[in-house]
Nucleic acid binder design. Structure first.
Lengths: 205, 205
DNA sequence: GTCTATAAATAGATAGAC
DNA sequence: GTCTATCTATTTATAGAC
């Protein structure tokens, strides 16, 4: 009978996948460092160690290149959420999610979000995979937020959408970069500080 | 006797100042919308309504142009802080500061912060006026933060520098853009939501 | 100082050999 | 698919007349 699982990749396909993985890694790092507009295709090619023309054999445009990297991050986020221990209280699931986003950013692999009228925005809006992953993630987080509010663990006076956006914003929180530049705190300390300010607030309790 | 006050500006000087003011306004808006890298000098010139070459008579480079706009914002921030009612409790001074930053961002006049290794960063680091204003602002806010912590109004477990950065980060908080795009909330509501999450945190109290 | 026109550099993207 | 070399458009910046 026919299998629904993907066929075992050939050696050639594995090589290609590894190459594209290397490209995505570089693109994510450059997107994190400089953003879409400042990132040049020449830099990407140099960083991967291939010719620019070769890069264009893999991805038809700079937008597609960056969009693929964004899709990859979104997929990983979705996978992370799907594997969170279901028995955890909703609030802890939200904290685990933020912790994951912070770890990705500290690893220099969180692409900075595209500016308002960027050509990347249009590419993402037209990417089925990106939109699907985003909706999937938002649905799951939204459920946890409402459950946490119902349980009295998250401020019920806040619209769930505002809570969702506040969590998303941690993925590009400049506080991490600032504190890291200060050199006074370890990655773990920075993570705990941002988590604390996010959930506990600045005011004393 | 000689006066220490600046001389009354001539009509010509006033015209020049008004022109440069218009330039700064456009630059701030474009920096807020697209960031330094995506903003082009052509756009600035078109937005102001003068020729590009004329722009270069006012500012020697794109970096200087953007840096001048950043300095202008920093000066305004410093002036705002200097005029906050001294009798207010430190925590309320901090809240008023965040409120001001949010209002500037909602007005589309808060330049997005330059990316890590941007040429703008170097220009700002070399700008005496920018650094002076930044230090001035940080000193004043730092004093209020420590006072608020000593008074038990701000979480004393947080390093003051982390609190300072968290406040600074509100100036470029993407939550405002997200909520504004949603169209479900007024600017006032958005302001209160961000203020609440910042100071009260997401967790219920 | 403002303008038009242009230089000089760099970006994204492609041609064509291998 | 990878490479070198190149095209085309755009960008920063400047020349030179008024």
């Amino acid at each position: 009978m026919h299998s629904l699982a993907p066929a075992k990749p050939s050696f050639k396909e594995q090589m290609l996948a590894a190459r594209e993985e290397a490209i995505m890694e570089s693109v994510n790092r450059l997107l994190a460092e400089k953003g879409f507009d400042a990132m040049t295709v020449d830099e990407v090619a140099a960083s991967v160690g291939i010719a620019k023309a070769s890069l264009y054999k893999h991805f038809p445009s700079k937008e597609d290149l960056a969009a693929a990297a964004m899709v990859r991050v979104m997929r990983r986020a979705r996978d992370f959420l799907a594997n969170i221990e279901p028995a955890l209280p909703p609030l802890d699931k939200l904290k685990a999610t933020v912790r994951w986003m912070l770890s990705v950013q500290l690893a220099g692999q969180m692409p900075s979000l595209p500016t308002q009228n960027s050509s990347l925005r249009a590419a993402l809006a037209g990417s089925r995979e990106y939109i699907d992953a985003l909706l999937d993630i938002s649905d799951r987080l939204g459920g946890w937020i409402e459950a946490a509010q119902a349980g009295g663990h998250v401020n019920a006076g806040l619209p769930p959408i505002a809570v969702l956006y506040t969590l998303y914003a941690r993925a590009c929180d400049p506080v991490l970069e600032f504190l890291k530049a200060g050199g006074q705190h370890s990655d773990e300390q920075i993570t705990e500080l941002v988590l604390a300010t996010c959930f506990e607030g600045l005011k004393a309790r």
